[in-house]
Nucleic acid binder design. Structure first.
Lengths: 206, 206
DNA sequence: CCGATTTTGTTCCCGCGTTCACAAGCTCTT
DNA sequence: AAGAGCTTGTGAACGCGGGAACAAAATCGG
């Protein structure tokens, strides 16, 4: 389920506040979802709650982390070290959740050799070598749209089977490879859409 | 509809290739969706296609842009100028779509006064003034999780009614205010989940 | 030890979104 | 001018996810 990471975060927040036990109602509120939905999601993993009491925060946290595969560490390569790629490379939220960025890659020769945090930027020609060497399983594409498909093809050929695509392009991959797409400008456009409808319905003529 | 921006991007790509007319099948493939779904989405806006011919790329592009409100320009303020905030401030995809970043704000005094691209970072105490002065309607939160709710409250109080939240926290706002949440690490966690299930189902015992 | 209370796990139902399939309509050829 | 060939727009069925409501189970008090 796509909501497990949200629950995990809510549980971590409760854990930080030294709360040992939590009801589905409380958890659901912290996660911003319906309590019945939360219970149903959790029951899908197994019966980790205690009726009349609630859920043990630490235990449930571990179970969700295990279900998500966060107890392993995942090797990640980032292709395209522009603004977004740098932001992701420095983002602390990854390393604390079992994701290890093992390489930064860029096609621009001027960037190759520069250091970003703990990493040196490699040339894109080393992509396959790096993937094989570090046993990378997840690729993050932060290149311009025009290069995204080409990079994706090379990642797949090199054996990467999960891709997170920030480039504003639809990329196609063979069966068995997962792609998730995040488009920052799309989110803003959706906001603008709602915003416009709000002002229109108020008869605002500006 | 949340898919309109995707169609818009596909149309722009076709337009760049000097294609004047496109069928729903072709468009759907470019957008990565089913053609019937695309036709239904578009028919919701009105009958902008011609049976037997297809859709006029430029005309449809304008109609979608208008529906989304991209023909106006939206004033945006970014709160929290860390890695992600900087990346967003420099992101070209915003300005080309009717979004104008009018101010960067940060709570860290060491950052105030620094320049990012065309903008100078302002202190967070100026938030309300900046919102009023530039008639800001969209706020982007890229602060740490702990500050997100406080910033959101101030944005709402200042009159902002659409918020894009990148902070890893659930924020609550009054009715009439839209919040969209983007969490970069959640996307990776979902990939890890699928990746783990793939390797498990292959009996890989590593 | 037994009943009251609380909270989980689950069932059932409703509504929405997706998809198939077809009718309506436009163009081009003959 | 009329029919053949496409392509859009939409009606209907299907499937899935969400939410309310209830039964099962565990704790607490008498």
């Amino acid at each position: 389920m796509a909501r497990l990471p949200i629950y995990l975060r809510a549980l971590s927040a409760l854990s930080d506040r030294d709360i040992a036990t939590s009801s589905s109602e409380e958890l659901a509120q912290a996660a911003g979802v319906n309590s019945a939905k939360l219970r149903k999601d959790l029951s899908y993993l197994g019966s980790y709650g205690t009726r009349g009491v609630g859920y043990d925060v630490e235990y449930l946290r571990y179970q969700i982390a295990r279900e998500l595969g966060l107890t392993q560490d995942w090797r990640v390569v980032i292709i395209g070290v522009g603004n977004l790629g740098q932001a992701l490379a420095n983002y602390a939220g990854f390393s604390t959740r079992g994701f290890r960025i093992v390489a930064l890659v860029d096609a621009d020769p001027a960037r190759v050799g520069q250091r970003i945090g703990d990493h040196t930027i490699h040339g894109v020609e080393k992509l396959e070598t790096l993937v094989a060497e570090h046993n990378v399983s997840i690729g993050v594409i932060t290149t311009p749209a025009g290069s995204a498909q080409r990079v994706a093809d090379r990642l797949v050929a090199a054996g990467v089977s999960s891709i997170l695509n920030f480039a504003p392009a639809v990329i196609s991959v063979p069966d068995g490879v997962d792609v998730r797409k995040v488009d920052l400008s799309i989110e803003l456009q959706i906001l603008a859409y709602h915003e416009q409808r709000k002002t229109l319905s108020c008869g605002d003529s500006t």
